[in-house]
Design a protein around this nucleic acid. Structure first.
Lengths: 191, 191
DNA sequence: ATTAAATAAGTGAGCAATCGCTTATTTTCA
DNA sequence: TGAAAATAAGCGATTGCTCACTTATTTAAT
């Protein structure tokens, strides 16, 4: 890694940690520089603005997660297996870099509107998988967005509570339960 | 309502709308004053600081929601009925004042750590209900926090996506599905 | 009941501090 | 040696909050 690239990576990591501990708005460029052991002006050699740095961080992770989830589900034929693959991939992703994961989770409301329409999207991946399973008759047909949201919530809410400090240990420890529960949600038949 | 109380309420409502549209950090006291049609200094006759105003707003709603959920579930004997009552109460609460609901949802990570330990807590209500149902043998015994989080996610994730603008219409329209899905999550038996 | 005194509520110009970002200068290294 | 990278000082703008003052409401005294 060249020196410039190393500096850029240090800025990104320092910013990430501070953005999660406080928030983007409450983190100053001076703090980022101090944490990255560089001068404040150096940030602007690598990023046009603090907001763009925050957005870059979000979008890169957003796209990479979507691609990883899509690759994970693709080889499997049945919805049940796709769910397991997606859940496992998601938990591994979160455990591998928890700070980055937490940043992505806590700042969706700020950046989701700025994701390009054609960019890979984690929710769209799940949405498509569920839609095809409904068409194939694997699960009952209902509002896809609603079903996807509820199934995603089964995994995302525990993850959120781990960010809040309510849980310890790796998220992947509960992969089995998450997959079973997500499947149960999708298989619900209105009584 | 006295004049002073009316002013205080106007400040709170103006702040709430701006806090949701932007964020607490990105909303200025000048904007709040302008939106509430009062002088900036008047804010400080009613609140010691912008942060305390934001915290007051959060804590009051947090407590009221917890009490409403607890009252809703109390009269019902079975878990299945308690779930339905809690889901219905929660959806009605959200639909009744969506701005306040969105504010509470989007700022949990900022304020949850500042909730007094003995204060009523929406998650604790669900937690207790599930714990008792496990003890009574109504559902399989497993980590209560995890089961509660997953069940809550079934409702909260769709609600979050509605805040993001992915859904339209009242949340209460899906009460039946939410209750069925939450029940399905809790009834999951590890295979 | 009337007036005087006291308190509370409301105002808005302005302050000290801080912010994101720029620029002139120095260092690094191929 | 020249361009890229990093630095440190600093600029204009904005921020939360204060404060001296005015206006409205409540309490007390005659």
């Amino acid at each position: 890694m060249g020196k410039a690239e190393d500096t850029k990576a240090r800025i990104e990591r320092a910013a990430l940690v501070l953005f999660v501990a406080r928030s983007v708005a409450e983190t100053t460029t001076r703090e980022i520089a101090l944490a990255a052991s560089i001068a404040e002006g150096t940030i602007y050699r690598h990023f046009p603005s603090k907001e763009q740095l925050a957005l870059d961080l979000f979008l890169r992770h957003h796209r990479a997660l979507a691609e990883a989830l899509d690759e994970a589900q693709r080889p499997h034929p049945s919805l049940r297996e796709k769910i397991e693959a997606i859940v496992r991939c998601y938990c591994d992703w979160a455990d591998r870099d928890w700070t980055l994961f937490a940043y992505h989770l806590l700042n969706q409301h700020a950046f989701l509107a700025r994701v390009p329409d054609d960019a890979p999207n984690p929710v769209a991946v799940v949405h498509n998988v569920i839609d095809r399973a409904m068409t194939a008759g694997e699960i009952p047909r209902r509002d896809v967005g609603l079903a996807a949201a509820a199934a995603i919530g089964v995994v995302l809410q525990p993850a959120t509570y781990k960010v809040y400090g309510r849980f310890e240990g790796p998220l992947a420890a509960h992969t089995g339960f998450f997959a079973d529960a997500a499947w149960a949600v999708l298989a619900v038949t209105e009584k």
